[in-house]
């Protein structure tokens, strides 16, 4: 995790969309590796994934559930060892470019909305009909329009266990840590540009500290806070994987709260840091064609508090804090 976190942060310094695609692929792979290896089909699939270097995308969102990935309307149906699954997904990032898809759905047609499983739909087994466009402020390179998915394939491609466990054990922690890591990358590059700007000012008048240096110290302080948070949670997650640790800890409420807090804090700090860097660079940060341009950083940054809306996460935390004792 610490290594993947570093990769996301490094990519994020150059292209946040690329970093996001990398992160999302790793999240899907982790779901299979951590929850599917009890099945021969998924063991073979993992080998093929590495061998052929395939790209995995996910269809977790759905029209009608109001952004709650932990509930589904669509259901997988199995007959004679063959699954059929149709889903109206609001966004499927890089759906047009992915090889295979992981799709969340109800376990069966009579299952509750929250009783979900994950189904692997392989290229050739699914069809995507684009329903909406991806004409957004930022993160444009993730190419995430809506699609109507229709798929069918061997029932063995239904991931063993429940999505509830895969979600709390893997998808949520991987998402929050890797997203936060790539946001750290955006923030790092914004501060790098601001620092370069201040140094250029300082060089033009040696002997006097430019007033912007104080602002640089301030924004650098926020960047260090963000970096410490991301690294701390990446390390804590890695430690919780070691055989000495109680793996059940990952399923606890305390851990869920920490992960949610990381997501809220890092996405909020990202917007603040890029904003501060922009004030510092002034018009040169506002221009698209200047070496100090922060336009793309700003556009991409504003996606962070919206990707699983922070208010939604605050509401979940509020509910958990009613019973969680942090002592």
């Amino acid at each position: 995790m610490t290594e993947m976190s570093e990769v996301c942060a490094a990519l994020g310094q150059y292209c946040a969309s690329t970093a996001m695609v990398f992160a999302m692929h790793q999240i899907q792979v982790a779901c299979i590796v951590r929850h599917g290896l009890g099945s021969q089909m998924f063991r073979d699939y993992c080998a093929e994934l590495v061998e052929r270097q395939m790209l995995l995308a996910s269809a977790t969102s759905e029209v009608g559930v109001g952004g709650d990935t932990r509930s589904s309307i669509c259901a997988v149906e199995v007959a004679d060892g063959i699954f059929t699954l149709n889903k109206d997904a609001t966004t499927v990032s890089y759906g047009a470019n992915a090889d295979d898809l992981l799709v969340t759905c109800r376990r069966s047609v009579d299952a509750a909305r929250s009783d979900q499983v994950v189904v692997l739909a392989r290229r050739g087994q699914y069809r995507l009909d684009q329903t909406t466009n991806w004409d957004t402020l930022g993160m444009r390179g993730t190419c995430s329009p809506g699609y109507r998915l229709s798929s069918s394939g061997p029932a063995a491609q239904i991931l063993p266990g429940s999505f509830a466990d895969a979600s709390s054990h893997t998808m949520v922690p991987y998402s929050h840590i890797l997203w936060s890591s790539l946001w750290l990358g955006i923030a790092t590059d914004a501060v790098t540009r601001a620092a370069r700007f201040v140094r250029a000012e300082a060089r033009s008048k040696p002997g006097t500290t430019p007033p912007t240096a104080l602002r640089l110290a301030e924004v650098s302080n926020d960047l260090h806070t963000m970096r410490a948070m991301v690294r701390d949670m990446a390390r804590e997650f890695t430690d919780a994987q070691s055989p000495n640790e109680d793996a059940e800890a990952l399923l606890g409420m305390g851990f869920a709260l920490k992960m949610n807090n990381l997501k809220i804090a890092s996405s909020t700090l990202l917007v603040k840091i890029v904003h501060q860097a922009l004030l510092l660079c002034g018009i040169l940060g506002y221009k698209n064609d200047s070496p100090f341009s922060l336009c793309r950083h700003l556009r991409d940054a504003y996606s962070a508090p919206l990707m699983i809306g922070n208010d939604r996460i605050f509401a979940k935390n509020a509910s958990m804090l009613l019973v969680h004792k942090d002592d």
Binding site: S71, R113, S114, D115, A164, K316, S319, V323
Partner: peptide
């Protein structure tokens, strides 16, 4: 109970009531 439709939000309310 999760397959019977218990969501994490509802389970918090069940916990609170039992407490």
């Amino acid at each position: 109970l999760y397959q019977a439709g218990l969501t994490s939000h509802a389970s918090v309310n069940v916990m609170l009531a039992l407490e």
